[in-house]
Structure formats: C-alpha cells, structure tokens
Design a binder for these strands. Structure first.
Lengths: 218, 218
DNA sequence: CTCCTAACCGAACGAACGGTCGGCCGGTTC
DNA sequence: GAACCGGCCGACCGTTCGTTCGGTTAGGAG
C-alpha cells in the first residue's frame, strides 16, 4: 500500500513509522467510520499484530487526534495566507474557495475524517470547536463581499456562506485524484458554479430575479 | 420530546409505537453516529429499558433499515414524479433540485442518516446501491440538459451533476427547520446559486469564460 | 561474538457490546 | 373476577472491544 517505510524493510517486514501507520489507519477510518473500525481491523490492514500498534501511538484516540490536527492545521494555514487579506473581498473569497479545494484534495483522507466527526469524545469536540472558528472566519469574508456589493443581494450572507462551503466540503464524498480530473480544473468548476452559475445566461432574464430572500422567523 | 405516543400514556408511562421509537432512535443515531450509538444509549434516551426495544424491532440493524428505507422511498418518489418527465431538461432539473431540497428537509433525520452510511453491513450496502441508482438517474438528467444546450458547455456533465447534488446533500450538515429559514426560500437559494451563480453579472465578462474543461487522464 | 534497541508478537484482561430470557403489570374483554 | 395481551423490566449470555504485558526477533554498533 501507500507506505513510506523505514530502512529495515528488506524481506517482508513492514516496519512502519508514525506517518505511514497513520496514513493506512485514516484510510480504514474513512472506509468503515472511526467508531466502526476496531483495532483489529487496523492491525489486519497494516499487516501487523494488534498490540504492535501501541508501540507507535498511545491508543485509538491519539490516532484520531493526529489525523484531525493535520487536517485542521492545513485548513487554518489557508485562512491566514497573505493573499486572503488584501484586495476586494470577492476576489479574496474566490481565492479562499480555490485554496480550500486544493488543501481539501491535498489532505483528502484527513479532511474527510474531520468532516465526519460527530463530537462523541473530547478529541472530537476539540476538533469541532476549531472547525467552528474556521467557519466563522469564512462567514465574515462572505459578509464583506456582500457589503461590498459584489454578491447578489437577494441571498443572506450567512446562507450564502453555508452553501458555498457546503459545496466545497461535499467534494470529499466523491472526488478521487486518481480519476484524472485535476485539482485546478476541479477548483475552476467549483468557482464557476458557485460564483457564476451553471445556466447559460441570456434569454428571459427572469423578471423576478433579485427579490430579496433573507432568513427570518416564520 | 418529539413522540407521538399511543393511548395509554396517562401517568409517566411512555408507551412507544414503532414510528415514535424510530424517530427518537434516528435522532440519536445522527447525534452520535450509528456505530457510536449503543442500545443502552437508545434505551436511556427513550426512557425505557434496553430489552424493551426488542419488543418493537428485531434489533439495531432493523432500526437502521427502517430509517434508510424511509429516506430512500421519499427520494425515489421525487425522481418518478410526472413533472420530472416532460418539458425542457433544464426545467426538469430545476424542478428536481427544488423537490429534492423539499424532501430532504421533510425527512431530514432519515436523509441525514442515509447520507452518512458507509456500507459496513448488508443493510447499509443495500441502501448504498439504491442511492447509486438514484444518483445515476440524476446524472442522466444533467446530461440531457447539457446536450440540450441549457447548461454551460465548459463543465463536464458528470462533474456538474456531482457538484449540484453535493450542494443539495450538504444541506443536512447545517439546515435546521426551526431557525426560521423556510424550505421554499432555501430551495430558491440553492437553485439561485447552482444555476445562476452568486456573483453579480456584468463588468468584465471574463474573456476566458467557457474554455472547455473536461475530465481526462493526466 | 555480544550487546542494544526498535519493532513486533500472542495471550490475556476488564469493560462494554448486541441480544435473550422469564416474568411483571395495568387495561381491555368477556 | 378471570383470562388475556401489549408494553415493559432486570438479570444474564456469549462476543468483541480497546488495552496491557512479558517475551522474541532482527539489524546495527562496538
């Protein structure tokens, strides 16, 4: 499988280091779900005994923590890139969407795991909190682009933000790098749909367009 | 809680029927994940003993099966509605997206559970297969709308289909009916973003627009 | 050849799991 | 009041869970 392995491989000895062990484990977590994966499932897939896993990590929870931190660190890095701080908000938004797609693909298994966390354990709850912070930052940017007048005014910024990043996050459910669709083209398509729409423009420009739709108590 | 309960409620006796028991169970499944939910978790939340659950259903797996079938039946019904069969493909597509959003909201807990299934058990694999059939039908419709010339030609139909219904499916991650955003407005917003785009049109109509982007091996 | 250490192993642990069993209890029916 | 039944219960079953522990083995260093 996918493993960088340390020196003493030689014959058939796997000899995992932490990174390769984590990579295999996360792959299994994504296939069967974290709770649905037993340490024996992992050991079978790793090709080593169940107890050997504890030579590398303290337990199942730490495996999860390492994976989630990796995803969160990568996503956080995007939000703090300099290009996300200057220029028109709508351009910064487009850049952020594009970079988010790239990171999501680069760290696909880890981000996939992150997006499925439900908060059952302290480790998961801490990850959810970090995720909420990121989402809040994205929301602010969409708000700014809306205030700026660059986004259609008939949609609530909070709603817009959720739709856009819901779309981005949904990529983990089907995108597989091996299938020949490059990341750049994928990001182009996401930006094209969310920002410019799928329908060919023209014809009846729809009289009712841009009637204001906002969240309100019904 | 949410439960319709049978006649003999009277004092403090819960007295569940199958529907109300399923409703509560699915809610817990969604909070903790199916694999992360024990029968004791359910019994605690239901307010009855663990063994009492087996008076209503054969086991945990049947609980899951009932919930998934409910979601799948509702979604299948949409795909076979008469309005999804006549008229321009792009109009049928818009209608299908709108109805999908409505059903997703109407059966939110059940659809949520369906979208998180990983295929660990036979019950889950059967559900995944039914889902794939639905997805295939959607893909055909997008293809038709594309052939018709109603969708921008620079995006691959398969890719478009995944993006649109990825967006729709991602609603389960955040939409809560109680928050005052009506289903109609939600569906309007989804159609508005996916089909017409978020950005205000005009200004530099982007010379490079509509360069063909298709999947190909790299 | 000897020693050291990183990586692995099988056996076993207590806890928690999904599920079974025999019985209780309060309404309804006759 | 006796018989019945749907809904519930506590105790318990065998299995599987995550984890621990006392070795073993292979390769590098001296």
């Amino acid at each position: 499988m996918s493993g960088a392995r340390t020196r003493l491989a030689g014959a058939g000895r796997p000899a995992y280091d932490l990174d390769s062990l984590l990579a295999v484990s996360v792959r299994v977590f994504n296939e069967r779900g974290y709770d649905g994966t037993s340490m024996e499932d992992l050991s079978a897939r790793l090709g080593i005994g169940k107890s050997s896993i504890y030579h590398h990590v303290a337990g199942k929870a730490e495996l999860l923590r390492l994976a989630l931190d990796r995803a969160l660190d990568a996503l956080s890095a995007v939000a703090t890139e300099p290009r996300a701080a200057h220029g028109p908000a709508v351009d910064r938004l487009e850049h952020l969407v594009r970079r988010s797609v790239e990171v999501l693909v680069a760290e696909l298994p880890y981000v996939t795991l992150l997006l499925r966390v439900r908060g059952n354990t302290p480790v998961e709850r801490r990850a959810l909190e970090r995720r909420r912070e990121l989402d809040a930052r994205l929301g602010t940017l969409v708000q700014a682009a809306c205030d700026e007048g660059s986004l259609r005014p008939d949609l609530d910024p909070g709603l817009t933000s959720r739709l856009v990043f819901g779309t981005v996050n949904s990529l983990v459910e089907w995108y597989r790098p091996a299938r020949g669709l490059s990341v750049t083209r994928l990001a182009d398509a996401v930006v094209a749909m969310t920002l410019d729409g799928l329908r060919v423009p023209g014809d009846p420009p729809d009289a009712a367009r841009y009637d204001v739709v906002r969240e309100d108590p019904s």
